[in-house]
Design a protein around this nucleic acid. Structure first.
Lengths: 198, 198
DNA sequence: GAGATTTAATATCGATCGTTATGAAAAAGA
DNA sequence: TCTTTTTCATAACGATCGATATTAAATCTC
């Protein structure tokens, strides 16, 4: 019983996600969030808890709705296709929306005030989790003969992730999709696998 | 005439630089800055102007004292050595100080509140300037026959910068120097030039 | 319809942000 | 020594931060 909620929680979450995407965790104020969501402050607290909890929800949604290509990439048949899938989809995501370029996750991994440290750790952990799964995928590729026996799979996964992060930074700096695609091309140009495709 | 300044301006600037390096522009408060420099707030304002001016001074000093390897790298004889110089020195710098990992510049390139936008633009511009000089260096290499005629020098420069940024992000996430060196190895493994050295 | 319960909106909380008056302390010139 | 000038340190400025107390409005059960 009681009064009904007048706003859609998922819509509000999507709007909040975009604010965090543009400004990062600390750069996004509740003034920004209420403006973007159209929901007053106390209602956001009532629906999501505090700012950190709201960010975590936004982060989950980001992984589900925007980074879904990452787990999908791992299912590609060859390690090279896995890497290509990740890189080109990252470029596309990072340049898709003119108002929110770059990657939500990349903001928080970097520094901030001491108060934001828990959020930073959460993003660092999420990043590490993704890299670990990529590493394991490359190990599988090695077992399957898709990657040479002497391949350093951990380093290869770290390399792909590094290029992805670099692409996010450059997207934030205003690079075109074409240029970032060329960066991805270069990253893939010397893949250690025996290439099925050029 | 008048009272003498009781602190060393350059020492204070170095201390402030370290704070910005660790926390970024917005993450660093004057409380942090006074604690690190040992200089009271009004004295910092008197010596440097406001926070943005102080950050610009710190940024200049960062480029002079810590990124000096970048212009030096451009003078290497081959494009591959230029790239290697940049990457390995970036790894070293990003992992040299346990308390301030990553790159000062990379923080501000990414998002923040609207108030920090001028600082972000300054860092974006500085980044672009460095990439432009690298691009020009590769064009020279092409003319000299060090790089193949069909090389996309802009993309190659963007690639090296992207890997450098990615390394900075991963350093902030806690990667070891050894792992990041391996990332640099991978980035160099497919260099388009005719290698003089392996 | 009456009472209970939940949400909405306004207004405000204490804390901290960057910034700056203010007056004492120190060093120069007279 | 006295005045002038500059720096230092305390304290406080208005603005904004994340987070709420409070009250009115809306919807349920009975």
């Amino acid at each position: 019983m009681g009064r009904h909620r007048e706003f859609d929680v998922d819509e509000a979450l999507d709007a909040a996600l975009c604010v965090f995407w543009r400004k990062g965790y600390e750069g996004a104020s509740y003034t920004d969030l209420t403006k973007a969501t159209g929901v007053e402050r106390p209602a956001l607290y009532s629906a999501f808890g505090n700012k950190e909890a709201l960010f975590h929800r936004a982060m989950e949604r980001y992984y589900e709705h925007y980074l879904h290509f990452f787990p999908a990439a791992l299912e590609q048949p060859t390690s090279r296709e896995v890497a290509a899938h990740i890189l080109y989809n990252a470029v596309e995501l990072n340049t898709r929306y003119p108002d929110q370029r770059g990657c939500l996750g990349i903001h928080g991994v970097l520094a901030g005030s001491d108060a934001a440290e828990p959020v930073r750790r959460a993003l660092v952990d999420a990043r590490a989790k993704g890299e670990k799964s990529l590493h394991e995928r490359f190990e599988r590729a090695k077992k399957e003969g898709d990657l040479p026996e002497e391949t350093n799979c951990a380093a290869l996964a770290a390399f792909i992730m590094a290029v992805t992060h670099g692409i996010a930074v450059q997207a934030k700096a205003g690079f075109s999709r074409e240029m970032l695609d060329a960066v991805a091309d270069q990253a893939l140009s010397t893949w250690p696998s025996s290439p099925r495709r050029p």
